[in-house]
Write a protein that binds this DNA or RNA. Sequence first.
DNA 1: GTGAAAGCGCTAACAG
DNA 2: CTGTTAGCGCTTTCAC
Lengths: 340, 340
Amino acid sequence: MVTLAEVARRANVTGATVSNVLRNPQKVKPETVERVMAAIRELGYRPNLTARALARGRTSTLALLLSNIANPFYPEFVLAAEREARKRGYFLLVCNTDDDPAITRAYLEQIAGSLASGVIVMNTDLGEGELAGIASKGVAVVLCMWEHVQASRALPCVTTDFAAAGALAAAHLSGLGHRKFGVIFGGGSGGPQTIRLDGFAAALAAHGHSEKSLFIVRAHDSIESGYEAAAGLLRAKPAMTSIFATNDLMAIGAMQAAADLGKRVPDDLSVMGLTDIALAHQFRPALTTVRLPTADIAARSVALALEMVEGGTPAQDVYVVRAPELVVRESTAPAPSRQR
Amino acid sequence: MVTLAEVARRANVTGATVSNVLRNPQKVKPETVERVMAAIRELGYRPNLTARALARGRTSTLALLLSNIANPFYPEFVLAAEREARKRGYFLLVCNTDDDPAITRAYLEQIAGSLASGVIVMNTDLGEGELAGIASKGVAVVLCMWEHVQASRALPCVTTDFAAAGALAAAHLSGLGHRKFGVIFGGGSGGPQTIRLDGFAAALAAHGHSEKSLFIVRAHDSIESGYEAAAGLLRAKPAMTSIFATNDLMAIGAMQAAADLGKRVPDDLSVMGLTDIALAHQFRPALTTVRLPTADIAARSVALALEMVEGGTPAQDVYVVRAPELVVRESTAPAPSRQR
DNA sequence: GTGAAAGCGCTAACAG
DNA sequence: CTGTTAGCGCTTTCAC
């Protein structure tokens, strides 16, 4: 391995100068810069990031804590996060917690303040208090996509307007003439997707629908769970003409349940999701959904974490990234006219 | 940040002893171990992995180079790889190369031998020669899922039997009575999926089918590309009764193309994929495919990389992980009897 | 503008 | 068994 010292020797300067050439070239005489650069090139020198990290007291990696990368939402997020990190010269450590608080803690303890100088926490069963404890050890911690905005937030949070997303779904379904709304209400670790549901329900009320037109079932974020929930819903309320799932995976499961029960989507039943993961447009019928600005949130989270790492203090507690938007595809249609 | 030295002071020993307690407790008197452990607990000491890495000349991270984590194959791989790494006390850096050799090189240069002590390379436009150059700098490089087994491999490679996978598909389709075989032949960076195709074609020949019963179109690994390829194929050869895609994503695209062209799957057309990603069973009709031992390969790759990092020399050049297996689902059926 | 020197926190011989 | 002593490769004042 070629070290700084070897480069220095070859360029007839000391390590300090080489270091300066690499970091503050303007502080070094152009001639010297040239000579050092030449030595670097000739020797094929690459700075050792570990040594640099130790000396500067700060690594060039960021950790991303998520429950399980096999959930198709995360890869989309990770892709965007990694690009932003790379653009800024940082690397991304992907940490699956499997929704296990013990794993989460282990990761946090090992990584925080030693391997990664910043951590983006996407959801977890850990309380904010515990996370704040980690943050107080000098790691930049940013919460991401948290649904439960609390009054006095200890940690900065990057998220989007989940209530507006729910409201968009409600407006669309209501506008199509639906009168009965099945809701598959999901959630994983990090808690239930309450805000999406509240936004949906509130918008429905604003459109003049009574609470009685809503039929809510609980599920968790997977196709299978959405399938079960929808099947139960459709059996219990065969007159249902629309289903809104607080998550695309569950919506896809709902479409499959409808098919298996002989209901055509969207002719007999409209189905909507929320998030707009890639699957939403890949499935047939393509899913009408509310798109969350996933990539923007990812980039913003990384950017915020890095600002904090590099000494900044977050200007706000909560960063709300761009509004969600309705994406109409094939799974929703006007409510079927009543049979007489 | 609590350091080793502080723990040492508190336990009335020197840093070396604390270090030993952490690494070779059997070399330290039980009493002292106790005392040190107590100090560690009281102080909430966590070893600084960066400092440790610098001192040992080896980090506790592994890098995984892949083209794009949004391709649904990768998250499944990453999940398994991360678990294996974590089990062994290592962390996983996920590096998207976006199929860009420049990004790949940049990652390799920055990471290899400084940030990560091992690199798993999943596919790339870089030649083995270039990778071997990196490896010679003291990083453990393992190739993973490479299809092109070369005689004199410079780097160890973990893979599976792709030819057998293709053969399994051929046997299944042939066994169902099909006589015309459309093949969507894919590939991304890392080259075309030649071996899968060869295995398929050879098995077909062995089952007595002439070369003329094969209709091959080229595509790349995505639903969209599979759709286009299948649409072209079905328009050119309307009598086609089966399609084998060398990759599940393309197979899914093929099923969608069939539907759009009014062909029922599997009644009119049987479609098969290869890999068995999660989407294969999530789609309807569920895709018949050949399952690759993805998780095993991931775990084995990580294990091999770590053995090398920890000083071992790979015993073999190529590690072939468990045989692929046929997974029959809903997208294949006996060939429709000929109309007269 | 450049060099000398003192670490960053930990590991690894080697002594004792 | 435990302590001493050098570093690992780089950054960073502070002199010159």
